[in-house]
Amino acid sequence: MPKMKSHTGMGKRVKVTGKGKIVRELTGKRHLLEHKSSHVTRRMTGTVTVAKVDIPRVKKLLGR
């Protein structure tokens, strides 16, 4: 059997913390920022944990 390869796109989108949580960036902060209010763009900073229902799918794509 060939080796399982991790999904490189998912590896760029999420990060596994030291305790094993999977965190991601919030969406909507890449482009078209000029018309978004400062309040909205500030709210989009930082990371959030991946939703509970998505964790098995993300772990499979990461090869864990």
Score class of each variant (00 low, 15 high):
H31G: 05
G28E: 09
M4K: 13
K5M: 10
S38Y: 09
M44Q: 12
V16D: 03
T49I: 06
H31P: 05
E34C: 06
T8Y: 03
K12R: 12
V58S: 00
H39N: 03
S6R: 13
M1A: 12
R57V: 15
S6M: 08
V58L: 01
V40K: 10
P2C: 01
V50W: 00
R13A: 07
T41P: 01
M44R: 13
M4E: 07
G28R: 11
T49K: 10
M1C: 11
R64L: 15
G18F: 02
R30L: 08
L33H: 07
H39Q: 10
L32H: 13
V53M: 12
K5A: 13
K12M: 11
S37H: 14
V53P: 04
T45N: 10
G9L: 05
R42F: 06
V16K: 05
T45R: 13
R13Y: 03
V16I: 14
P56E: 08
K15P: 02
V58W: 00
D54H: 06
K36E: 04
S38F: 04
I55R: 12
M10F: 11
M10E: 09
T45I: 08
D54W: 01
V14M: 03
V40D: 08
I55H: 08
G11Q: 10
R24V: 14
V53G: 11
T27N: 13
G9T: 03
M4T: 09
H7W: 09
K29P: 02
R43T: 11
I55Y: 04
T41C: 02
L26K: 15
R57F: 12
T17Q: 00
G46A: 00
K21C: 05
G18A: 08
H35T: 13
K29L: 09
K52F: 08
K12W: 02
I55K: 13
I55P: 07
H31E: 03
D54K: 05
R30F: 08
K59C: 06
G28A: 12
V40L: 11
P2Y: 04
D54G: 04
H7E: 13
K36D: 01
S6G: 09
K5E: 12
R57H: 14
T41H: 02
A51N: 09
K59D: 08
K36V: 01
K19Q: 12
T49M: 04
L32G: 06
T27C: 10
E34D: 14
G63N: 13
H7V: 05
R30C: 06
V50K: 00
S37Y: 07
H35V: 14
G63F: 11
R64I: 15
G28D: 10
